[in-house]
């Protein structure tokens, strides 16, 4: 038990040190959401009719926060694949620590890194003409942290199933990108036809972004959020638990 706590501490501390020392990584992962926010969001603002009650750039803001978290959490977890082959994960796997603590440690590292990146994006709110109070920012960070944990756990689950890096582009094109498009980030989920609507409903990112919409647009109810906040939170928590448990079980058994 003690060594499991130590293992979690080691994984998180290591990630923290690396995050602080490798600043280039922060810049390169922030580049993607910034491009989307200003190029896609800015460009579409001119096209999308203003009767949705806000500029399109503001509408996709929660989605861009979600995107930041999605990429950052999943990439952080997928590093398990090469850590396992080349380095530190091997050292963890022969140490007398449970696989469960490795999964938790890795999910918490992803949470730390992604929440911090989400914070940087959130702080751009004045640039796109939004007004957020400090209480709203704190709530946004809470949701971001929960969503980060959930997606980092999903990343671990993907990493324990896909053992080699050849499958990376498969993960990117068939998991990450569809998750982003089918999440309500770009358009309200309500507007999607049946099958796609179903896919958005089994996507944890949908609920994360929906909850972020609550926090960012508390008074505009028309085209923003799709589900009750309690459902959003429950969906994130339950899927996190399921991902962590399955990942730990697969990890334990796989040899």
């Amino acid at each position: 038990m003690k060594s499991d706590m130590n293992a979690i501490y080691v994984i998180v501390a290591r990630e923290f040190i690396k995050f602080v020392r490798e600043r280039g990584r922060l810049i390169s992962t922030l580049a993607r959401p910034l491009l989307w926010l200003f190029l896609v969001g800015g460009g579409m603002s001119k096209m999308v009719s203003p009767d949705m009650g806000m500029p399109y750039m503001q509408f996709i803001f929660p989605g861009i926060i979600g995107m930041t978290i999605l990429f950052s959490s999943i990439f952080s977890s997928i590093s398990i694949i090469w850590d396992k082959e080349f380095g530190f994960m091997k050292e963890m796997l022969v140490a007398p620590v449970s696989r469960f603590s490795i999964v938790i440690g890795k999910a918490l590292s992803g949470t730390m890194v992604s929440t911090f990146q989400a914070l940087i994006i959130v702080l751009l709110f004045p640039v796109i003409g939004l007004r957020l109070g400090i209480d709203q920012i704190i709530l946004i960070l809470c949701i971001s942290a929960m969503l980060s944990f959930c997606l980092a756990s999903l990343g671990i689950l993907i990493a324990v199933f896909y053992e080699n890096l050849e499958s990376f582009s498969v993960i990117m094109n068939f998991i990450i990108m569809p998750m982003f498009f089918l999440s309500g980030a770009m358009y309200p989920v309500k507007l999607l036809p049946h099958v796609l609507g179903f896919l958005t409903k089994i996507n944890p990112l949908t609920y994360g972004i929906d909850a972020l919409k609550y926090m960012i647009f508390p008074e505009k109810k028309l085209l923003t959020h799709d589900f009750p906040l309690s459902l959003d939170v429950a969906a994130i928590v339950i899927s996190s638990i399921v991902f962590v448990i399955i990942a730990a079980m697969v990890f334990e058994r796989k040899k």
Partner: peptide
């Protein structure tokens, strides 16, 4: 399997945590 971003001391320190 060393962590190249970490110092020599940090690598050994983390190891000593893992092994209690």
């Amino acid at each position: 399997t060393l962590d190249k971003e970490l110092t020599a001391y940090e690598n050994l320190l983390f190891h000593s945590y893992l092994y209690n």
